[in-house]
Amino acid sequence: MIDKPLVTVEDLTVKFVSRETTVHAVSGVSFTLDKGEVLGILGESGSGKSVTLRALMRLLPPGKTRIAGRIEIARQDVMALDTAGLSRLRGATVAMIFQEPMTALDPVFTIGQQIVEAIVQHEGGSRADAKRRALELLERVQIPSARRRLDAYPHQLSGGLRQRAMIAIALSCRPALLLADEPTTALDATVQIQILLLLRNLQQELGMAMIFVTHDLGAAVEVSHQIAVMYAGRFVERGAVAEVVRHPRHPYTEGLMGSTVHEVEKGTRLTPIRGSPPNLAALPPGCSFAPRCPYVIPRCERAIPELRPIASGGYHPHATRCIRSELVGHPETITA
């Protein structure tokens, strides 16, 4: 069973349908993830990364959403699960942590009650046992004076502690896969790093697989093994972290690097990506990045480029959705 991946997603498509428009939030995402492996999904707001996460758990409101494709997690066909099956999957096999812990925790239940509730729901057993586990979990996520915090309400904790508490709830039933939806975005810079390191340590100690969604390149690099860059509902580049960061082969990835502060020397100008993300209700027929791309040629606008491998070998072969990938990194070749 070693060779069977924990997560297989094939051609995942998510549309939000309303009377007036159809928004193509995710258009054909495929990937696999092994046990204990971390996939970072990088993209700006509205690129479909959070929707992809929610689709994996089928959390999106069924009335307005059309999901297609194949999702298999721990050898279960997620698309075929009924309500009871989904309940068993969520929280136990797959857990999720959210961006804003203040709004993602129930404000009128204590942290302890919320952990105990999850444990009792999935594993049964007595509340006393569950409470003991809850205490261990709070200690595990390094919440100081954990015993006292069990009886705390979310609003009584600081942002960092709240996020730790949410991680504790997510870990309460030892999930095989943790979905992290921008877990550090809402936090202070110093706390961000602590939470990031905590997540990485827990992921390694527990051997969990994780999908880490963020728009923060630094955070994605810190925790991920493979990275996928998402734009307008599609993966535009994918590969091992070091490879993608060192040799970006898609103009959008290159643009992201150019507009972050991380590795740019002082005094160098940041180069923002011009234009704005496309309207997901009216996507262009060709490459969706073409309108903003410095390397664009007429052929780009004719058809959507395939996600094609550009290097064979390696566990996560580098792939890009750009027909002029060999030019990326050489802006001097642009002919105006």
Partner: peptide, 23 residues
């Protein structure tokens, strides 16, 4: 958002209704 988070924990609809009524 916390209702979605409760669903993500795999709680039954009955439990979720309890959370909603408490709120």
């Amino acid at each position: 958002e916390f209702v979605e988070a409760l669903r993500a924990r795999g709680l039954s609809e009955r439990r979720i209704l309890l959370h909603v009524s408490r709120n």
